[in-house]
Nucleic acid binder design. Sequence first.
DNA 1: CGGTCGGTTGAAGCTAATCAATTAGAGTGG
DNA 2: CCACTCTAATTGATTAGCTTCAACCGACCG
Lengths: 232, 232
Amino acid sequence: MRVDDLPEIRQLSLFRSMSEASFADLMKAAYLQNFPAQVDLLNEGDNADFLFFVVEGCVELYANANGREGVLALVRPVGSFILAAILEDSVYLMSARTSEKSRILMIPAQNVRDAFESDDRFARSIVLELSGYFRAVVKEYKDLRLRTGVERLANRLLKYHQAQGAPGFVELPCDKKILASILGMTPENLSRAFGTLKPYGVDVVGKKVVLGDLESLSVLAKPNPLIDDPAT
Amino acid sequence: MRVDDLPEIRQLSLFRSMSEASFADLMKAAYLQNFPAQVDLLNEGDNADFLFFVVEGCVELYANANGREGVLALVRPVGSFILAAILEDSVYLMSARTSEKSRILMIPAQNVRDAFESDDRFARSIVLELSGYFRAVVKEYKDLRLRTGVERLANRLLKYHQAQGAPGFVELPCDKKILASILGMTPENLSRAFGTLKPYGVDVVGKKVVLGDLESLSVLAKPNPLIDDPAT
DNA sequence: CGGTCGGTTGAAGCTAATCAATTAGAGTGG
DNA sequence: CCACTCTAATTGATTAGCTTCAACCGACCG
């Protein structure tokens, strides 16, 4: 594939300060592929052979244990995943599947590690990328440990509201089933949680949600920048 | 303080491949201090002014939200904490307090960032350190999401058993109260969880635990290297 | 000897998962 | 265009897991 097919990749903070040569090497080795929905891209426990980027569509990261399954995160354009496994030359800790028809960029692990060794700027960009990842998981962990299901939903809605910028209105980024799993609850429980939030001005029709009383919703949610703010 | 006071610091994977000069610079700026038990070293939300190392003793990382508190991890010698906040020049996401009398090494954040910019080997060591952190939190997150309290306890016991190497015997690394919080449950619940494990050969007296039937305990716990193995 | 704190135990209540049944919607083929 | 089908989503009833509150025991310490 051609480097200039994907200017948005070059502009990612991960690659922006990389040398022209290293970037070209990486892209030469890379694959750009289209996948239908519901295709497994990798399974936890597999050797980390590729670094992935979602160019179009959406990917779910999920995991299984003790007979249960949970979605840990959604990745949307242009986001990467499983960078840490690549660098440690180890196995994936999460599985990944497309949740929509998606366009995926795959870079062989060895090429990434070579570039990491040879390109100093790239190595430093990776540090910032990983710090961001790390802090994001810590926030998710705190969210799960310190909040009830209803609180998690309320805060998630406020977060989407902030991100989407439409006053009093939110569009859910995925099916309620997947949203439930991301929030660490069952679909039934999510449905009831929306019911619980109705007195706080939350009205849901399909993926469209009206937040009619941000004031009282915030009182319930107690949003916390150290959990909910993607920037901090 | 003198560099050669702390040969074990120099030997950390984070510093091992660092240039002599950069390391000396860092250590010149560093503070080595003794703290009694139960002293708060930093609070979540504070600016990240120092990178910390536990040289002796033990530190709890914990967090608060929505009126609840949870211990997220214990750090023992020689471990670092809050590296990611330093690199992002941001605020701490977790609070830290000594849980025993402890000896703490503190390096000013700016010096760490300077060394990160000037020393290529150091920058790369940080990547591996952060990958390890990241993967550790992902494992904790999976543990919490995908297992019940009793399962988490059983797996934690098996993990300590593995680490300590004494067949059929485990010594708890902290008070049960703190262990409970680490496992994401109340002290009462931990007590009951130990009770539940009695038929599986688990006998507790104080911090001493006998694992009398590893076979059946494992059947219950279903240990999973992608959660429990510190190495993967 | 009294006090504090860690730990345990019991009872009650709450949160969330499970099981079961039903409804709503999206997509398919006649 | 409409019946048919499949899955998402909702709702109710029940159960499991966990927390909370309260009482109590025992060890350590002033």
